[in-house]
Structures are given as structure tokens and as C-alpha cells.
């Protein structure tokens, strides 16, 4: 009797917990024959947070130089889980000598990604002398 009572309570609690955790994932559609030709670059990745690397998984990095000579970087990320994820990101910029150039464009930006969603994160260098970059991701609650 006591066991069945506990079982019912546990099932009810489980249902409530599952309902509270359920999140909507993202479906999408896009044109198959792409007109644009992105210039993808080789990248070096350092992963210290495996959980974050699944929620904000790096897909590709492409760059352009704007007409004024500023390096623009676009990073494609995908949430490989079914849960919404909040995170912070920050671009670090470096000049031709590898010296970091600190500026407001290197502010830490809060962002979110839905389960299954693919999104783009873009950054523009603070001046034309910046030739290299590093994008940092920090997990949030």
C-alpha cells in the first residue's frame, strides 16, 4: 500500500519535472543551391567545457575584409542538444605582431541558442591593423 502511494507520488513528480524541463527545438528551411561563396578558414579549437561544446558546437568559421580593410569574422554554431542554452562570448583581436588590441568591440556579450538551432556570431575588428582573432565562449546558468 505504502509502496504504491510512493510510486504514484514519484510518477507525478516526474511528470511535473519533465513538463518543466521541456523545451521547444528549432526546425528550419533554407535554399539548397547557395549563391554566396563563403570563405571558410582553418581553425584551431580548444575545448575545456565539454557540456558547452555540445550546446554551442562550432560548425564553421568564415572571414571577409570589409572595403575599409577591417577583418570581419562570422562563426556558425549549432546547439546539438534539445535544451535552450545561455552563454557569453567575447572576441579578442590581435595585430600583425600578435599583440592584443583591447577595445569596446571586445566586450563580453550575452547570447542564447535554442535546442537544435544553428546561428551565427559575427565580430568586426576594432581597426585595420588587427589580422588575427580568438573567440571565447563561456557557459552560463
Amino acid at each position: 500500500m505504502k509502496t504504491s502511494k510512493y510510486l504514484v507520488l514519484a510518477l507525478a513528480a516526474g511528470a511535473v519535472a519533465l513538463a518543466g524541463c521541456s523545451t521547444a527545438t528549432v526546425n528550419s528551411v533554407e535554399n539548397t543551391q547557395k549563391v554566396g561563396q563563403p570563405y571558410y578558414i582553418n581553425d584551431t579549437r580548444v575545448v575545456t567545457d565539454n557540456s558547452l561544446a555540445k550546446s554551442v558546437a562550432l560548425v564553421a568559421v568564415n572571414t571577409i575584409t570589409t572595403p575599409a580593410g577591417f577583418l570581419k569574422v562570422q562563426v556558425q554554431v549549432k546547439n546539438r542538444t534539445s535544451s535552450h542554452k545561455s552563454f557569453l562570448y567575447r572576441f579578442d583581436w590581435f595585430d600583425i605582431n600578435g599583440m592584443q588590441v583591447k577595445n569596446i568591440v571586445s566586450a563580453t556579450i550575452p547570447d542564447q541558442i535554442e535546442g537544435g538551432e544553428t546561428k551565427f556570431i559575427a565580430g568586426v575588428a576594432p581597426n585595420p591593423d588587427c589580422k588575427d582573432f580568438r573567440l571565447n565562449f563561456i557557459g552560463a546558468k
Binding site: 570589409t66 575599409a68 566586450a107 550575452p110 568586426v124 575588428a125
Partner: peptide
């Protein structure tokens, strides 16, 4: 304070990207 930094950073990057 971080909201000002976020808004300024995102706006400046768009301003720098425009000709």
C-alpha cells in the same frame, strides 16, 4: 553596466562594417 557595453560593442561593430 554590462548592458551599455553590449549595446555599444554591437553598434560600433556594425558602424565599422559600413562604408
Amino acid at each position: 553596466i554590462q548592458d551599455y557595453a553590449t549595446a555599444a560593442s554591437l553598434s560600433v561593430q556594425k558602424l565599422l562594417a559600413t562604408s
